[in-house]
Write a protein that binds this DNA or RNA. Structure first.
Lengths: 189, 189
DNA sequence: TTCAAACGTTGCGGTAGAGCAACATTCGTT
DNA sequence: AACGAATGTTGCTCTACCGCAACGTTTGAA
């Protein structure tokens, strides 16, 4: 149940099994069906999650009702509507399982309690923030500076999982193009 | 010299003057001319900075040589090429003073030493990362989901300093449009 | 195993913004 | 204060991407 999470802590910190066992029970396992909405826009995000199996998508809707996907969390990673979790304001983001998934869920309160009391969790949170930030930066420069075709090629090279496991509709909303355009781009590759 | 920085720590943490005095000498004052490049792409970023006065811009060049601006740091805030500072890889970002500025500069080594040994600096770094992340998210959704005109209106409302203090060229590269387009958008407001 | 609903593809026309050129304006330097 | 260089404006044309419509394909629930 906690193997992947332990592995994650091992990679990022100097944790030992005893220490890990002292807090891992705060993470509650949960099996979730495909397409299940974990958080809706307007709700305040009160949990952090770690994906044991499957994939969680974080997205928003703009005024025209289009879906804009910000991030996919696959197995072995943390993911949540961080902005709402941090600010404790109603989320503008949705969280959705895009595959049948097995998650480890920890409440916001428990999570920040651990961040403040367990140095290894503090380190992991720092790493999560740093990586989330770096990923965002690369995405900003990609959206601002590259053509849709270049972004697709980048995705094929660096995130092939996304292309092989997820639907075109969802991939298009991640690349910032319509499904029509994605379909045409794929044809001209 | 350190008033603004102390104020910043006061807002974010439970610091007291004695504690602050014990580490603030790690931040070295530096006066910098307008347009001075503080970091070039290709160099590894080895410092963090706090702006006492003026404005620092962080931007990159895409393959066509266009400037894409990621962020402006005004007085009273931290700013640096965070990605390179964290990863210790050559930066793809430039840092440039866009106004005559007065900075407080701390080396990467000293900064992370303080993060690891002074709880209040750890808190400040966490806050910096959280805010940097949240700002990035809003920018991604803005770039992906809004028209150039909507982004300009957003900027007028939430970041009027940028419009009043900086050049159109630089504002355009922040909004993700050409200076031509920005000029036309302003005309039709 | 079937069949409706969701998803993917493609032709066609529309639109936001790019990019050149030519001119106007502002700004930094002496 | 004067002048050259950088910046800003605007007409014109061009292109990447959008978005509808119509049709083909996959999927998952009974």
């Amino acid at each position: 149940m906690y193997e992947l999470l332990y592995q994650y802590f091992q990679e990022k910190t100097d944790i030992d099994p005893k220490r890990f066992d002292s807090f891992c029970h705060y993470f509650k396992p949960k099996k979730v069906k495909r397409n299940k909405i974990l958080l809706s826009a307007g709700d305040v995000c009160t949990f952090n999650l770690f994906v044991n199996e499957g994939c969680v998508r974080i997205y928003t809707l703009n005024e025209e009702g289009q879906e804009l996907t910000r991030y996919f969390t696959f197995e072995g990673k943390f993911g949540t509507a961080l902005t709402s979790l941090i600010e404790q304001q109603p989320s503008f983001e949705y969280m959705q399982c895009v595959e049948k998934s097995e998650l480890l869920i920890i409440s916001r309160q428990d999570f920040f309690h651990l961040v403040d009391t367990v140095p290894q969790v503090n380190d992991v949170y720092r790493d999560v923030l740093e990586m989330a930030y770096i990923t965002s930066q690369k995405r900003i420069y990609g959206l601002q500076g590259q053509s849709a075709l270049d972004r697709l090629k980048w995705l094929m090279h660096y995130q092939p999982r996304i292309l092989s496991r997820l639907s075109n509709k969802v991939i298009a909303s991640y690349l910032g193009v319509t499904p029509y355009t994605l379909s045409r781009l794929k044809a001209e590759l």
